[in-house]
């Protein structure tokens, strides 16, 4: 294949697979939640309920595309597109295996952080444009939560950057050939995982939606396709965070015997299942608890990790 054909195959391959996985996750999540909560989950449509995804899709596409008369139409339509686009674009830098992956940026890690930091606009603007009190509250919560957790999400990764000496994700994976970064950077791994759950608004950190108190939070006024974009954006975000944890802490595609792609997929799948288990097992904290936890526990932890890692790297560096 020519380089251009190879590049196009990578772009569309990754795009299609990510979207397919995100769609399939709707079913996987509900089945796994059912399993862990001792009930069935969707099992009627097709074998094992697999066609439930198709049924849900048809339903979502057929719904009326409703814009509330009191809403700010332009921003309301724009908001769900932001989250879907930035999470998909962030996938461009994920190194799936040698030769598989859309681009190889020397600032790949920063690119991921940049895209995930733009996702907050989707929720804040969606909540604001809906012009309803529950949406606005959800938007506020989303803005404050994502901004707070983003701070130490970036900080927790700097230990990895120091050990690998680069922002290039492929080089970071290669640097883990002898030891996965989860061992020397265990604190960073824990902080990043928690921040990742909060960034992707997964339960237990789904305060911006909080069905029990805010109806549906920032997307209360959304339905049909626009709601579908929020929904898909969330699942793509889940896959993205798991893929990033695998890349940064679990050795990416590295592993014995099996081909690299398989290792990457297996590790990511295990992490996704773990995230779903968290959703099945943990209750939702209060909002002030969430904020206090972030700023008073996670941020200092990330800073200490950063300082200690820096000290060790300097101490072990050959003297000039």
């Amino acid at each position: 294949m020519t380089p251009i054909a190879l590049g196009l195959a990578n772009v569309f391959g990754v795009l299609v697979i990510v979207l397919a996985v995100a769609a399939l996750l709707i079913w996987v999540e509900r089945r796994l939640l059912g399993l862990w909560q001792d009930r069935y989950g969707p099992n009627r449509v097709g074998p094992f309920g697999l066609l439930q995804v198709v049924a849900d899709m048809i339903k979502i596409f057929m719904k009326e595309d409703w814009v509330p008369p009191f809403a700010d139409k332009a921003v309301l339509v724009l908001a769900p597109q932001i989250i879907a686009i930035v999470t998909l674009v962030a996938f461009a830098v994920v190194p799936i295996a040698p030769g598989i992956g859309v681009v190889n940026l020397n600032i790949g890690l920063l690119f991921f952080l940049a895209m995930s930091s733009l996702g907050v606009y989707s929720l804040a603007l969606g909540g604001w444009a809906s012009n309803s009190k529950y949406s606005l509250l959800g938007g506020f919560r989303a803005a404050a939560q994502l901004l707070s957790y983003e701070v130490f999400m970036g900080l927790s990764l700097m230990g990895v950057v120091m050990l690998a000496g680069t922002f290039d994700l492929r080089a970071i994976v290669e640097a883990q050939r002898h030891l996965w970064f989860i061992v020397p950077q265990f604190v960073g791994f824990v902080v990043f995982t928690i921040a990742g759950i909060a960034e992707m608004r997964r339960l237990p950190f789904d305060l911006p939606e909080a069905d029990a108190e805010l109806v549906a939070g920032f997307h209360t006024e959304y339905s049909g396709f626009k709601f579908g974009l929020f929904f898909v954006g969330e699942y793509i975000g889940l896959v993205l965070i798991c893929a990033m944890i695998v890349t940064l802490f679990l050795g990416g595609w590295l592993g014995p015997w099996l081909p690299p792609v398989v290792w990457f997929v297996v590790k990511t799948a295990v992490l996704i299942a773990f995230f779903i288990l968290l959703r099945a097992a943990l209750p939702r904290p209060r909002y002030d608890q969430l904020m206090a936890y972030g700023w008073k526990v996670m941020l200092p932890l990330a800073l200490v990790n950063l300082a200690v890692t820096g000290a060790i790297v300097v101490a072990r560096a050959p003297a000039h």
Binding site: L113, A114, S117, L118, Y121, A124, L147, E150
Partner: peptide, 26 residues
């Protein structure tokens, strides 16, 4: 200057402007 570009997005577009939006929403 890819590094400056990334920081521009992370710091300005992704953090400071969010605070602006936050205030405007209120």
């Amino acid at each position: 200057a890819p590094f400056a570009a990334a920081l521009e997005v992370i710091i300005y577009a992704g953090a400071i402007m969010v605070l602006f939006v936050f205030v405007m929403m209120m």
